[in-house]
Design a protein around this nucleic acid. Structure first.
Lengths: 344, 344
DNA sequence: AAAAACTGTGCAAACGTTCCCAAAAACGTT
DNA sequence: AACGTTTTTGGGAACGTTTGCACAGTTTTT
């Protein structure tokens, strides 16, 4: 069951021209006379000719598509980033191919290599929480595959990167908790492998320091799998509770919702006493509670910026050697106490 | 900036064989001696040979990729379906390309045609809420593109379809509201264009009938854009409130969360008096309220089943003429009253 | 011992493009 | 009228595969 479309050859034959002429006419090359162009274009329109992108890719050795690697699309932050990516990519004539790692290094490597073999022209990637070894990316990069990192970026990789101002976002969220009277502010966070984890930890520490609150390492809990497994979260929450935190600063979308669920499940009686401030791009959290404050990342914009940088690399005539790391501001969304949480 | 990989030709030259022999050895054809196979395989491994899928696609006139059209990936139902699709597709050697319509017909048509020109081998699609004219799909189907519909399916299109038991899901949810004492149960739903809208309406009506409650058309509100615009939802809620509903059955993920937000925003004082039961695959809703009951669709499974059907069509030697419509059961998840809603 | 069958390999065409190079047509200049 | 330019077109190779066919060498059959 194959379906057939008309090709350049068909048009050439029908019009008594050569394939080269037809090809050039379709691509609007200057060498072709207006007359012939019109003829070809009209006929192409008539038979509903669509260029075969596969053949074109083979010939030109590029696919006009860019690969995206995220941990999960079912994550508001990432799906917003993807929307930003698409908004730019499609305008510039690129197609996007999305792959999910589900926070697994193995899956990440597999997906990247799969994409690379599909001859993507460039790669946009946010590393998985498991990833430590990025040599496979270095290899591809060295072979000429343009790569732009976003959100979760490696430190020692000379290419463009786009991140949120994680330090400030974390600082603001933590400060907010402190200013609302919390003194024992715990920190629930992602794998230590991630750049965002390190940066947000620093912001948390800086806020504590500003208010002369001692930093206690035991109040920081890491989740290696970024909260993909609920046991992981429940365990973290369980270990945190003995210290009687009155506030928790949480460093990711998935962890924020996961933590609330874990609290609800394991310790419903004290859950409402703990104020939470966390990174999240979900607008649903507004529904949770008056004490949940969120740090929103400019996800859509991040996708746009990253894509523009990537396309500039792809289309550069000479190898790019000057790289930038764009840092975008986050926004702290405080919940209004007044609305209450039991509006239902 | 292009990057080079070794090809069959390179291997052939290095080993003093012909490209045909190398190709056959790599594909493990019977004609090739074990000895040569080993030789080729070893060398291919050594130079890290990756077959060029583009060339293969061109030659075989298929791309080993399937297109997916959903309204939004930032929707738990669809992202779970996609995970289901991927789980099967990758196993069977297919790649997936995801496109979003954002509930726009124009976008849907554009995306489908784009995918078709990228020579996808088959299409999995859930129609946008705006879609009424599916002739463009008929054309592609007639040209030989295998299509399987899921979730939002057209009535008069002879191909495989996979849907949830929307009637029963709606019936159960509505009955649940009635059994918990609600007598004025409104229905907030999607565009009338959609199959799910019609089926769920019937389930709602049947439940009312079972308990001898009169069906009132004014208690049913349609959202043409599936809740993509918040004004749309706020308007619907506003129109519903004068009838003083004590329960609302909501027919989709996005509408459920959107409705709660609209209630919170416009009428926080009465919001908590209204019980809600809705179709949603978000596990976050568990956090909302004790009175929110959800109908969960077997999204992951739906993706799997649809993909298996699609691949069977793609790989069929002769045109398929017998089609099935698989109906999967939904699950009603009642909230436990005990946990309360202000656990935070 | 010749014919038949089988094994393993190579040649070459094809998939639908793009593009280098050359050829033809049109035009202008002397 | 002969030549040089410019404009327009065509021939054909190439991109990296797969595969039908042919062919050589080996084995089996009669």
């Amino acid at each position: 069951m194959r379906f057939e479309t008309s090709t350049i050859k068909d048009i050439a034959k029908a019009l008594g021209l050569s394939t080269s002429t037809v090809s050039r006419a379709l691509r609007d090359r200057y060498e072709i006379s207006e007359e012939t162009k019109k003829l070809v274009l009209a006929y192409a329109e008539k038979v509903n000719y669509r260029a075969n992108p596969i053949a074109r890719s083979l010939k030109e050795r590029r696919s006009y598509s860019i690969g995206i690697i995220v941990s999960e699309i079912a994550n508001n932050f990432f799906s917003q980033v993807i929307n930003g990516i698409e908004s730019i990519a499609y305008d510039r004539g690129y197609h996007v191919i999305i792959s999910q790692t589900h926070e697994s290094y193995k899956q990440e490597k597999l997906n990247v290599e799969h994409l690379a073999s599909r001859s993507i022209d460039g790669l946009l990637i946010a590393l998985s929480s498991e990833t430590q070894d990025i040599n496979y990316l270095r290899d591809l990069y060295a072979k000429g595959l343009p790569i732009v990192f976003f959100d979760r970026v490696p430190e020692d990789f000379a290419t463009h990167k786009v991140i949120a101002n994680n330090f400030k976002g974390a600082f603001d969220a933590t400060e907010h908790l402190i200013l609302s009277g919390k003194r024992t502010v715990a920190h629930l966070t992602n794998s230590e492998n991630l750049s965002i984890t390190r940066e947000r930890l620093k912001g948390y520490q800086a806020a504590l320091a500003k208010y002369h609150i001692e930093f206690k390492p035991e109040l920081v809990k890491y989740c290696q799998h970024g909260g993909m497994h609920s046991e992981e979260l429940e365990q973290a929450v369980k270990e945190l509770l003995p210290y009687k935190p009155d506030g928790i600063f949480i460093s990711s979308d998935r962890l924020t919702t996961g933590c609330i669920m874990a609290l609800k499940k394991t310790n419903p009686e004290i859950a409402h006493k703990i104020a939470i401030a966390g990174f999240t791009n979900s607008n649903l959290v507004e529904l949770f509670s008056p004490s949940l404050t969120s740090v929103k990342q400019p996800a859509f914009e991040m996708g746009q910026v990253a894509t523009e940088l990537l396309i500039s690399m792809i289309e550069a005539k000479r190898p790019v050697t000057e790289f930038e790391t764009k840092i975008l501001d986050t926004e702290l969304v405080r919940m209004q106490k007044t609305l209450g949480n039991r509006f239902l």
